[in-house]
Design a protein around this nucleic acid. Structure first.
Lengths: 184, 184
DNA sequence: GAATATACGGGACGGCCGTCCCGGTTGTCT
DNA sequence: AGACAACCGGGACGGCCGTCCCGTATATTC
């Protein structure tokens, strides 16, 4: 809607988005908007014009990332055996969380409201995941009473484990523990 | 060391401690020191004189709570069967975490440094817990490769689950999942 | 190449927080 | 009861953050 952005505005917008994505991923949501503007080499006004609030900036980042994740989830749902698809996506999310502090902050709820992003129905990560879970339960691989909140909680735990030292062995062990725990 | 506090100073100190404990437990570490002073009915200066920094205030609260928890852990270690003792303490910590947002904030590391409190060797919660885990592993109930960081991560997950709705059934289910996951 | 809309930069503002300080008050000890 | 030290209250300060605004610069259009 409305008019296309001026060329320099497009460049700046993209650059801010890129720098913010890297920064939030590396250092979490506590980084200030001033700092992001500085790193992007633009003024604070430029950031806040394109993204009126810090939350809207993070949402823009999250949406594009979620799009990719949902696509992965759907690809897994079609290709693999149901139980495997579920755990493959779980492992994927653990890796994502380990590399994206901002996402973890948002998930932890201490920062932004994750639901407000979900409200944008376009990329419903939880919905896609719920579907993976449902199929795996019907196939009999996963205990039937587990719900998506349980899964999210276990994910939070796995990501928390990554903070105590990013050991591949430890990650595999945590995934194995979750696997055994969720077995039907 | 030094002189005993004046009577009114003792009262105020105790009152601040009590109010702060309730407030941090109910609302987490993000509550301001001004707010705690207000609720305790004292000036902000009174708080910061007894506890020079916010962190020192939280530490004082945490230390006394940890003392109780360590005692429970040790009692469990003596009385019950090793595997049961471990899971009993795990359930206790989940309950504690569910009722104490401040503790969770500290554990999540986004706020205070938990290790600085641990440095006070008097109440070594993690140490006591590590002992419970070690015995349970020797007794054969728990997979031998799990370490205390795994346990802490699973605890974080269980506490996170409580936030999605404090359902006793859900809590029991999460505990069951952890039990199965950690089984040898 | 001039005119005009559009975007930029970064200073300014208001709000919140933790900490410090000082004039006034209250407990304590003789 | 009087005098002194200890303590209280809450205003003040400095710092950080998110957001807004305006004089200036630059892309676009004719």
């Amino acid at each position: 809607m409305s008019k296309p952005l001026r060329a320099d505005a497009q460049r700046n917008r993209a650059r801010v988005l890129e720098v913010a994505a890297e920064t939030f991923a590396a250092e979490g949501l506590s980084v200030s908007v001033h700092e992001i503007a500085r790193r992007a080499g633009v003024g604070t006004g430029t950031v806040s014009r394109h993204f009126p609030t810090k939350e809207s900036l993070f949402e823009a980042i999250l949406l594009s990332r979620m799009e990719q994740l949902v696509q992965r989830a759907e690809a897994l749902a079609e290709g693999a055996e149901y139980g495997e698809a579920f755990f493959a996506f779980f492992a994927l999310m653990v890796e994502e969380g380990a590399n994206n502090r901002g996402l973890v902050d948002a998930l932890a709820g201490s920062g932004f409201d994750f639901r407000s992003v979900e409200a944008e129905r376009r990329y419903d990560v939880m919905g896609a995941w719920r579907e993976l879970l449902r199929r795996a339960q019907q196939a009999g691989g996963i205990r039937a009473d587990a719900d998506i909140a349980d899964v999210k909680a276990l994910l939070t735990g796995c990501i928390d484990r990554e903070r105590s030292g990013a050991d591949p062995v430890a990650r595999a062990r945590m995934l194995a523990i979750v696997r055994e725990g969720l077995r039907a």
